[in-house]
Design a protein around this nucleic acid. Structure first.
Length: 425
RNA sequence: GGAUGGGUGGCAGAGCGGUCAAAUGCACCGGACUGUAAAUCCGGCGGGCGGAAGUCCUACGUUGGUUCGAACCCAACCCCAUCCA
């Protein structure tokens, strides 16, 4: 079998490993590896990409990936990296989230075939875990002294809001997850982000102490951008993988806007392009960074992986059109294709024949929250028609049939990237 | 339960009887500069009408009151923080 650990290392996906022996082990036999995912959203977001990619690497190498949705632990919340307790989720919401997460995962993992991936909910076993049983089998093996020494816990203890017992127990539950999976699913490896190291080793320790078994852990580095910030934040919020929450176009654009210096690293970590090819792409990019060829390739690959080929191509095409050409003289269908992800709106044709105030249209089309704001945009030169590079210059400008880009549509834009496709019917 | 302080725009935080749609900072939105970035600089940032000056409506925890006039004073209530029990 191919050496997954080596692959992860080459791609910058390996931060820590509990025992070097794992490298040999997973060349000799197919193992089961699990990663926990946070089920607090309807979709996974960019923060989970590294984990999804990691599982895929394992699957490609012939191992058996298990994605564990923290349905049980999600009701509690990991104190790591958050300063306040999260709200507890109810069952209905959780079920919805799980379905959404599964959908996101299908882009990365194969849920069929010989070493099919599995998605399981830890609520299935945590839900029926008795408190006494838990204290006896799990709690007994942990020293509170060590637990409160952990950075994540200590910070919360020092803070005024404190930490609830529930949250404090999180680590034990995650350890129990690993223990359970080891015992009942033959899972011998847990992977996760580097912030999970403590939780992972806690699980491996528990397995060793109580079952005398050998279990391993690997962590991936946190994916940070060139400025040391966490990846996946957009102005509107998280970069979700679900196309309904973040359109493929926005998703693509997110990657196009990355910095030059990060391109190679992201490609290694997040795509499955061969390393030599990545080197070639980076070299080409560095020769002429102003073309953003590296970013565009990264964006294409990411969109391809998450949203599929058809979307990736359309998106790529749309971006090329929007950032280069003029839009007039196109057909309705072409415009619809290019702007399929942009908001759109319909206004009765008769109004156009008479002429409509631009400010009114901006409000009706949701490009401006109020008429006052619309006027402000106009007076500051922030409104563009049909992708022209000169803004509409008058607040009183009326839109007429003359302004149509195609038979019945026009494109209004505010700022640099807020588009709306307006069709007059 | 008691004491004290406090609840103001998305957040933080001034204002403490008219000049307050409410300083300032952050966030946000335009613009300039750039390579679809960051930083920086300029403009804006409750809503309606108006070209504008302007004008009207809604808003300073809730409800009442005092006053020609209240974010600002009074009362009750509801929350929050800290200390005490």
């Amino acid at each position: 079998m191919s050496n997954v650990i080596q692959t992860l290392r080459e791609r910058g996906l390996l931060q820590d490993i509990t025992d070097p022996a794992l490298e040999d082990l997973c060349q000799k036999k197919s193992i089961r590896v699990y990663i926990g995912f946070d089920p607090t959203g309807r979709s996974l977001h960019a923060g989970s990409l590294v984990q999804l990619v990691t599982l895929r690497h394992f699957q490609l190498a012939g191992h058996h990936p298990i994605a564990v949705a923290g349905g049980g632990t999600g009701m509690i919340g990991d104190p790591s990296g958050r300063s306040s307790e999260r709200n507890l989720q109810d069952d209905e919401e959780l079920a919805l989230n799980l379905a959404g997460i599964r959908k996101c995962m299908e882009s990365f993992l194969n849920f069929e075939g010989e070493n099919a991936a599995e998605l399981i909910n830890n609520g299935d076993w945590l839900g029926s875990l008795g408190f006494i049983e838990f204290l006896r089998d799990v709690g007994k093996h942990f020293r509170v002294n060590e637990m409160i020494a952990k950075e994540s816990v200590r910070r919360r203890l020092e803070d005024q809001s404190g930490i609830s017992f529930t949250e404090f127990s999180y680590m034990l539950l995650q350890a129990y997850d690993f223990w359970y999976l080891y015992k009942n699913h033959g899972c011998t490896l847990q992977a996760g982000g580097s912030d999970q190291w403590g939780n992972i080793t806690a699980g491996a320790d528990l397995i060793r102490k109580t079952l005398g078994g050998e279990a391993y852990g690997v962590t991936t580095p946190l994916l940070l951008d060139g400025q040391g910030r966490k990846m996946g934040k957009t102005q509107k919020g998280a970069l979700w993988l679900d196309g309904d929450m973040v359109s493929p176009y926005e998703f693509y654009q997110y990657w196009v806007r990355q910095e030059d210096g990060d391109i190679g690293r992201y490609m290694k970590m997040l795509t499955f392009l061969p390393l030599e090819e990545i080197d070639a792409i980076v070299a080409e990019h560095e020769a002429a960074p102003e073309y953003r060829s590296g970013q565009k390739r990264l964006a294409y690959e990411m969109t391809l992986m998450v949203h599929g080929e058809a979307e990736a191509k359309k998106t790529q095409d749309a971006a090329a059109t929007i950032y280069s050409g003029s839009l007039s003289g196109r057909t309705d269908d072409e415009l619809r294709g290019v702007f399929q992800d942009a908001p759109s709106a319909t206004i009765p044709r008769s109004e156009l024949d008479e002429g409509v105030g631009t400010a009114d249209v901006l409000v009706r089309v949701n490009l401006a929250p109020s008429k006052k704001e619309a006027k402000r945009l106009l007076s500051q030169g922030g409104v563009y028609l049909n992708n022209s590079d000169t803004p509409i210059d008058s607040e009183k400008r009326q839109l007429t049939v003359e302004d149509l880009a195609s038979d019945s549509m026009m494109i209004l834009r505010t700022g640099k990237k807020n588009y709306c496709l307006v069709s007059f019917e």
